[in-house]
Simulated scan of single mutants.
Amino acid sequence: MEKLEMNNIFSLFKNKKVLVTGHTGFKGAWLSELLNSIGANVYGIALDADELSLYNLIDLKTKVKSYIQDIRNLESIKKIVKEINPDIIFHLAAQPIVLESYNAPVYTYETNVIGTINLMEAMRELNNLECAVMITTDKVYENKEWAWGYREIDALGGHDPYSASKACSEIAIKSYKRSFLNNINMVSVRAGNVIGGGDFSKHRIIPDIVRAIEKDEPVELRNPNSVRPWQHVLDVLYGYLLVCYNLIYNDNVSDSYNFAPIDEGNIYTVEYITKIFIENIGRGSYKINVHDTNKKEMNMLRLDSSLARKELNWKEKFNTKEAIKHTAIWYKEYLNKNDVNNITKIQIKNYIGI
């Protein structure tokens, strides 16, 4: 990943009107800050940010034109998208938590499926949209918990409502592409377990560790042996921008792409990630407390990112241990009550080489 290559890709976004749905969430806030740093005019549609969120900590509301709106409201979404008239869209708005999908299955399906359809309905009325990148998840695959990574041609499915809703949204995306949006460059992208500073979501291991440190308690690991493709948020977002670049300048683009670490990063368990994070941050402890519950999370999930590496020339900058290190650096600043706006800018600047 050469500096010149990255700069060529980033130059595409300068002065473009870029819409990010879900910009008040963890990945959406990082993406909005990244786009802002490379000169894009960023717009966002999302629900209000949680009080403790990256969006608020870096004062993103002063850098993005925000529309606080539930994506399930079709007429409002159509009106807002038409008003923005974006050149580029990144769709991240979602109910993203597996365990929460068991508590609120209808809301999860409405947000993840109908919300995606509502956005595509709005896209039908645009005449200058250059590309749309539809972000789903690694959990869209029919998970058989086998040892090798899922490829883009493998069957979609989902045991829990979150995974199934995202698989449904993938089917809807392909349907709209073929039925109504065949003149629009649109691709779905699937990433693994994304880590990085500023994630305060419930039921995610890094935020759980940080909350436990704040309470001076050991973090409880409910699935210590679960394996996920752990990767840093900036590596994933670079993949999203790279997809957009190829959609505009390359005719040979597939319908969907996986972004995941190479095999070495596809084998780490929750317990291992916890140990390395605690070691890097220099604080904390853990205990294993497996609950017998019908709210099942899959134990083994691996992704094959060969297609993105071959067709897009994507490559992660951080291996999994480096991703954990940079994540711990961010949270050290947070726990020490320092200005995390500064560390966020530094990490983006160092990543993109400006």
Rank of each mutant, 00 (worst) to 15 (best):
F200H: 09
E2V: 06
S165M: 07
E170T: 06
V236D: 02
I68W: 12
N193E: 08
Y102S: 11
P218Y: 01
L52A: 01
S169Y: 01
N112W: 07
D50A: 12
Y43C: 08
K63I: 07
I9C: 03
E145H: 07
I68H: 15
G157H: 13
S53I: 12
N258R: 11
L301K: 14
H23V: 15
S53M: 10
W146H: 10
N118E: 09
T21H: 08
K337L: 13
Y43L: 07
I77S: 05
V194K: 04
V210H: 08
L54V: 09
G284R: 01
N15S: 14
K65L: 04
E33K: 15
N41K: 15
M186T: 02
L31S: 01
S188R: 01
E271F: 06
N15Y: 09
R228L: 15
E130C: 00
N299W: 09
V18Q: 07
S66P: 15
N127P: 06
E322A: 03
L92Y: 02
D208I: 02
A260C: 14
Y150E: 13
F277D: 01
R151D: 07
T344Q: 09
V106C: 02
L242I: 03
K79S: 14
L12S: 06
L126H: 04
I71R: 02
S175A: 08
E110T: 10
V236F: 10
N8C: 06
M6K: 13
K65P: 00
Y102I: 11
Y176H: 13
N15G: 03
V187R: 01
G22P: 12
D339P: 02
N289F: 00
F277M: 01
V113P: 03
Y150F: 15
K321V: 07
W146L: 11
S175I: 01
I80V: 14
P224W: 00
F180H: 13
H91F: 00
K17T: 13
G353Q: 09
N143L: 11
S37V: 04
R178T: 12
A260W: 05
K325N: 06
N127W: 03
G115H: 05
A164D: 04
K321H: 03
I281M: 02
A40R: 10
S188N: 12
K349T: 12
R309F: 00
Y109C: 07
V340D: 02
N342T: 11
K202H: 07
D87Q: 10
H23G: 15
R204L: 14
I262H: 08
E311C: 03
A40H: 09
L312A: 04
K78R: 13
I281T: 07
F180E: 03
E271T: 09
E145P: 06
E217D: 03
H23P: 12
D48S: 14
H232T: 04
A29I: 06
H291Y: 01
L307N: 09
P207T: 10
H232F: 14
R222F: 06
N250A: 00
E279K: 04
I71A: 07
L242N: 09
N266F: 11
K174G: 05
C244Y: 04
D251V: 01
W148D: 08
R283C: 00
K139G: 02
Y331K: 09
V194L: 07
I97T: 14
S175Y: 04
L242R: 05
N7W: 10
R211I: 00
V194N: 06
L301A: 12
E152M: 06
S256C: 10
S305V: 11
